[in-house]
């Protein structure tokens, strides 16, 4: 019998990807890696939206995921500029070294 992926499989994949993203943001120390993990979270959101959209035969989720992609691109433009800016000052993108402002 052929393996037929169902709603459950897609959602589990999306949830796992999301958790990997969250975990990455919490433990990694390189700003670029943090940023990649955030993108991973956004992409798992897209996968969730598209899965539900396909399952419900409804276009809203597809539209939402397009907007998420567009906003993620805008965020990437600003985010990478900010990381570059930090690198100019610190010669490093390690977030542990960004400690001039103390809690």
């Amino acid at each position: 019998m052929m393996f037929e992926p169902t709603l459950f499989h897609y959602l589990t994949l999306a949830a796992m990807t999301f958790c990997i993203g969250v975990f990455g943001v919490l433990v990694r120390r390189n700003a670029i890696t943090l940023f990649m993990c955030i993108e991973l979270m956004l992409n798992s959101v897209n996968l969730t939206f598209i899965t539900f959209s396909k399952y419900r035969v409804d276009m809203d989720g597809h539209i939402f995921s397009f907007f998420v992609m567009a906003v993620a691109a805008a965020e990437a433009a600003v985010g990478l500029a900010i990381i570059l800016h930090v690198f100019r000052h610190k010669r490093s993108v390690n977030v542990d070294e960004a400690n001039r402002l103390k809690l």
């Binding site: 990381i83 001039r100 402002l101």
Partner: peptide
Amino acid sequence: RGAEAAMKYFV
């Protein structure tokens, strides 16, 4: 400090 603030806020 501005760069650092921006990065913290952004991330």
